[in-house]
Design a protein around this nucleic acid. Structure first.
Lengths: 141, 141
DNA sequence: CTAAACTTGACCATTTTAGTCAGGTATGTA
DNA sequence: TACATACCTGACTAAAATGGTCAAGTTTAG
């Protein structure tokens, strides 16, 4: 069980973006340099963030990206959802007719995984981009 | 971010085992049939569970596996640890000298991933095999 | 009109996952 | 003692996911 780097990068990039958000659009090139993330990969990620209306793009010279919402209203759960980072514990949910493992009933640990998903998602829903900004200010050396 | 099936199977198999534990050793063959998990794969998993002293094996005809501890003392965290299912959010911890992404400092979201790991691990530490047994009894159809 | 920056989609090497396969070894029972 | 049952071990592998790169655009400020 691990987080993919797509999700990690998305959050890192958005925190970076949020820091400079008030002044100017931020170019992916800058984020790439500051955060050490490949430019091409960032483009894939921001394409998804834009589709999900988390950021807006401004084209042309001096263009870049800006947040499309208040940092307080951007929850981690929104970010992860945008880049297809989902908390998935059970496969069994797919086949709605049959239970898990092709049996007629739910697998004996089904409830557990449901609980776990809720537990993790709760964490993501309560954490906003703004929380991260503050947390980072406090603890930065 | 998802759970691997090795971890899921380990928990499923142990719940199955715990149900019949008081009477006789349970053969992997039976678990395989009841839970729809490949026998060969189960053997890999139980080899690890045994190394971690979660189960004991009894060889020969009528042999099988039994729990090595009270179901109350087997926490999910023990099971996952045994089968190498770990909650991993940050890569950055590996290179202790340098920070994340080869930079000198911690990445700006480092604290977040630490918090998340703790959040998830807490869940696993508080859940025992016994909890699962009871939970399953209540909700089974 | 040109350089900076966004946009899109195809492509790919590596790693992980989720097993299978092919051999064993130990032991209770007939 | 034979043999069936069940554990034991390690090598192997197909398929999927990951973590990107590459190429070829389009848009717009200056």
């Amino acid at each position: 069980m691990k987080l993919t780097s797509k999700g990690r990068y998305a959050v890192m990039a958005l925190v970076d973006l949020a820091r400079f958000n008030n002044i100017n659009p931020v170019s992916l090139r800058d984020i790439s340099l500051r955060q050490g993330i490949s430019l091409d990969y960032l483009e894939q990620i921001f394409s998804k963030l834009k589709k999900n209306e988390i950021v807006k793009s401004i084209r042309g010279t001096q263009g870049g990206y800006v947040l499309n919402k208040n940092p307080n209203d951007i929850k981690l759960t929104n970010i992860f959802h945008a880049v297809d980072e989902k908390v998935k514990t059970v496969q069994c949910k797919k086949e709605s007719k049959r239970g898990c493992n092709g049996k007629a009933t739910k697998c004996i640990t089904h409830n557990l995984w449901d609980e776990l998903e809720i537990h993790i998602n709760t964490f993501f829903e309560n954490k906003s981009l703004n929380d991260l900004l503050n947390n980072n200010k406090e603890t930065r050396v």
